[in-house]
Design a protein around this nucleic acid. Structure first.
Lengths: 217, 217
DNA sequence: AAAGAATGCGACTAATTATTCGCGTTTGTC
DNA sequence: GACAAACGCGAATAATTAGTCGCATTCTTT
């Protein structure tokens, strides 16, 4: 278990080599698929390298042809998810800010729907997201993304109400993110109808959360 | 690492022996204190038995005089926290149900304040709670408590509005718990003033969440 | 088809860490 | 103060797993 990379893990998360031959790029997919399936099966615990290799019909050695360490595999799976949040929120800051209560509600709704879509589209990798949160090595990386997302939520709030103090915006940003995340994780574990009901619940909560701080009208 | 107890862990969580001599009951406290301090220091990862023993000025062997395994130590720390929730919610079900919108708001507020107090009083063991959630062996035990708490929140909702369907009550119960938990964890990491502001935020969200389902008036 | 590069293999290494066990020490009891 | 029970110790055990390395196989190119 040569394991003091943990500190430098961040540097070491890039793929060790680009696949050159066609067979190997399929192998990368097999590895990622195996890791995803196992993470889903096992819930909390991240799968072992041996388990991933076996499931992918490979040997451990082959894993390390393409990934510098186990963490990199999980992170690769989560990468699309992690990066789509900033994109989506940033997009909703580019439009003209609302001028009355009704337009404001519309804006909340849009942000709300866009973020919800991210969850729905990535439903199958929620177990990976949860595993990452529970992993000491990966947690800091997720925290970085979270910081970014919170900052963007805060920016969105100030876009909607430029008079809003930084401190308040950032507090509300954290809560929007965490409430949304917690509720949607619950929702995705239920059937689609319940998910939709929970979405309505979250929307009401978001509105209740931010409305007092956005004295339009 | 004799570690296939995991399955039978549940049986094995009781203290191995009651301390008979006075010196040893102090030792149990020292162990618990050490585990608490280390968990707080290390954040996510649960401390090793060796680290706990060292910090408590003991040897590993002595740990196992009083605890059947490492998990039992953390669980012992969390036990008061885990059990106070059911107590507190159950107490709020015993009073007469509200008859109008204003009394209802009062009831929400009371439940809200009572649960908030649990967080404030146990602020220093939040890292333990988080560590437990991230630990594959302990998670299931916390989940059991969570089930219980959700059921009680649901029962409270039906106490307030007896006409409320089971399914809705349980959905709202989950959300009350998760939203409260997520926000309060954030709050406890901030200063007291911010905690109070977040409490107001949560109260508004709770009200927004449940009000549509409680057609009093 | 032969050379050389890329890929694949899996036994092995090594780090980590939970738990045990036999023995020495302290404490309580008479 | 002597005896047994309780307590304390920590080296040894053993389970688990991440990551390596030299050799084997397959592919690409000419």
């Amino acid at each position: 278990m040569k394991r003091n990379l943990s500190r430098e893990t961040r540097m070491a998360l890039e793929p060790r080599k680009q696949p050159r031959q066609e067979r190997s790029s399929k192998v990368v997919d097999r590895i990622l698929d195996a890791a995803l399936i196992l993470t889903r099966e096992q819930g909390t615990k991240t799968p072992t390298t041996l388990a991933i290799a076996r499931r992918a019909g490979l040997s451990v050695g082959s894993l390390y042809q393409y990934f510098p360490n186990k963490e990199a595999i999980l992170l690769d799976l989560a990468r699309r998810w992690l990066s789509s949040f900033p994109e989506v929120i940033a997009r909703r800051i580019k439009v003209a800010p609302p001028t009355n209560r009704d337009e404001f509600r519309q804006e909340v709704r849009k942000l709300f729907i866009d973020t919800s879509r991210i969850y729905l589209e990535n439903a199958n990798l929620m177990p990976v997201i949860e595993a990452i949160s529970g992993n000491a090595d990966l947690r800091p990386i997720q925290d970085e993304y979270d910081e970014q997302i919170i900052a963007l939520y805060a920016a969105w709030l100030q876009h909607v109400n430029p008079a809003l103090e930084d401190k308040i915006a950032s507090r509300l940003g954290v809560l929007m993110m965490d409430v949304g995340h917690a509720c949607r994780l619950v929702g995705l574990k239920r059937d689609r109808k319940t998910y939709d009901l929970i979405e309505d619940d979250v929307e009401r909560m978001w509105l209740a959360l931010v409305t007092p701080y956005l004295d339009l009208d």
